[in-house]
């Protein structure tokens, strides 16, 4: 009957891994990869709820999430290429001049 908990745990764990990766890594590309890991966690959660409530709306949400992921990837990679061309490095620390 209750099969939601493992899926929620998986989703939370994937999301948490993504958060940690986002904070820990210094490579711009890997930072954005970490956000994609967070997206995976959310997608798993949405699909799990869709199944739990026997409703396709959760899956529809997940599809829209995919659209957002694609938008984010397109823009983020464009930005990363731009930043890479400016400083010739992918280090996020190279862009910390605004820090007090």
């Amino acid at each position: 009957m209750d099969s939601l908990l493992p899926s929620l745990m998986l989703g939370a764990a994937l999301f948490g891994l993504g958060v940690v990766g986002f904070l820990v890594r210094r490579n711009l590309i890997v930072i954005f990869l970490s956000t994609e890991v967070m997206f995976q966690g959310v997608i798993v959660t949405a699909a799990a709820f869709a199944r739990y409530y026997a409703h396709v709306e959760g899956q529809a949400y997940a599809l829209l999430l995919l659209v957002i992921a694609a938008v984010e990837a397109g823009l983020a990679l464009g930005l990363v290429m731009l930043l890479y061309r400016r400083r010739d490095t992918l280090d996020a620390e190279a862009w910390s001049t605004m820090r007090g």
Binding site: V20, L23, V24, R26, E93
Partner: peptide, 11 residues
């Protein structure tokens, strides 16, 4: 910057 994590404990 790929080999060293940034503040792993706090993160």
């Amino acid at each position: 910057y790929d080999r060293r994590a940034r503040e792993p404990f706090l993160a």
